[in-house]
């Protein structure tokens, strides 16, 4: 693959979908409700593990397994929200980081017969793959495997449906209350709204969407491993959200696609420039095996420039952002 096809490929994989959904969930939390959730990885993780373990260890049907994942996400939101949503915003941020890390450690070290430690859960994709209507001849279509194509065929329309839902609910009176809470909780309270309850609803909604991302990612990779859900996961989702611009329905998708395309493009470009007999970038500066990390440094640089010159994100509205940038 080359400079053009590789970014296009990476922007649409099942993994990309799972990050898109994580970012849409964060958009509900951070973009609309002003909730600082630094544990979005945990929602994706409980979704993926819930579904994976339900099928791999308990042989439950796919639909039930998905319900298990969704219920796990709701419970997780309650665990994070009940003690913190009455307090100042920073408490939620701290608790979500902690819970996400604790969960990751739980998945990697305890209940080994279910969570399989660092090997991860696998063997749960059968029921989903058996529904695949695509012909075998499509197994290398556009470089995607037939299984990946099937996940994408379900995943992207799902993204569309969820965006439609987010759009509908955010223009409703419910969305008005949530957006008002982001701006001034006390004003909303003085008008008789139960702020705590709305924050909880927003936390659950965004978390459940993150868990759906967990399902898609797990079906794509055919395995669930604890270290996929580390802090990087959350921060990448945040990067996508901020890149696209918070509090806009479409922006997490745009942000995610641009993020993957950019990352992939940089990877290809830097590899090309630094490899070969007479590389343009000499090996004293960079060798091809360092590309994987250095491209993230460039993404960081891009994000810094974005924050300086366009703090509302590429597609955001300056009036709407929670980051009060001037």
């Amino acid at each position: 693959m080359d400079l053009i096809t590789s970014p296009l490929y990476d922007a649409f994989t099942p993994t990309a979908i799972s990050f898109v959904l994580a970012a849409i969930g964060l958009n509900i939390h951070f973009g609309y409700a002003g909730l600082l959730n630094f544990g979005q990885a945990a929602f994706a993780a409980v979704g993926a593990y819930g579904m994976g373990v339900a099928i791999a260890s308990f042989n439950l049907p796919l639909v039930v397994a998905i319900l298990v994942g969704l219920v796990a996400a709701v419970l997780l939101a309650l665990v994070m929200g009940v003690p913190t949503l009455r307090l100042r915003a920073d408490y939620l941020a701290i608790v979500t980081i902690a819970v996400a890390e604790i969960l990751r450690l739980v998945f990697s070290t305890t209940f080994k017969e279910y969570f399989r430690a660092r090997d991860g859960v696998s063997g749960f994709t059968g029921s989903f793959r058996s529904l695949n209507p695509l012909p075998d001849s499509m197994d290398t279509f556009l470089n995607f495997s037939r299984n990946d194509l099937w996940v994408m065929l379900v995943g992207w329309p799902l993204v569309g449906l969820i965006l439609l839902f987010v759009w509908a609910i955010m223009r409703s009176p419910w969305g008005r209350v949530v957006k008002s809470i982001r701006e001034d909780e006390d004003a909303v309270r003085s008008l008789g709204k139960n702020v705590y309850s709305y924050k909880m609803q927003a936390l659950i909604l965004g978390g459940v969407i993150g868990a759906v991302g967990g399902f898609v990612g797990a079906q794509g990779l055919a395995s669930v491993q604890p270290d996929s859900y580390n802090l990087d996961f959350t921060f990448i989702a945040f990067t996508m959200l901020i890149l696209g611009g918070a509090a806009r329905v479409m922006s997490p998708v745009a942000g995610a696609v641009i993020f993957w395309a950019l990352l992939s493009f940089l990877g290809e470009l830097l590899t090309k420039l630094s490899s070969g007999d007479n590389p343009i970038i000499p090996p004293e500066f960079m060798t091809p095996d360092q590309v994987g990390n250095i491209r993230f440094a460039f993404v960081g640089l891009a994000l810094m420039l974005l924050m300086i010159f366009r703090p509302q994100g590429l597609f955001g509205d300056k009036k709407e952002i929670a980051l009060d940038a001037r």
Binding site: A168, I169, S172, P173, W174, V177, Q201
Partner: peptide, 21 residues
């Protein structure tokens, strides 16, 4: 509008369905 109390549209389940509110 935010000031009006008892709005059906402020319920989560009714929010997405504009015809309800």
């Amino acid at each position: 509008r935010l000031g009006a109390t008892g709005q059906k549209g402020e319920k989560f389940w009714a929010g997405p369905f504009a015809f309800l509110w």
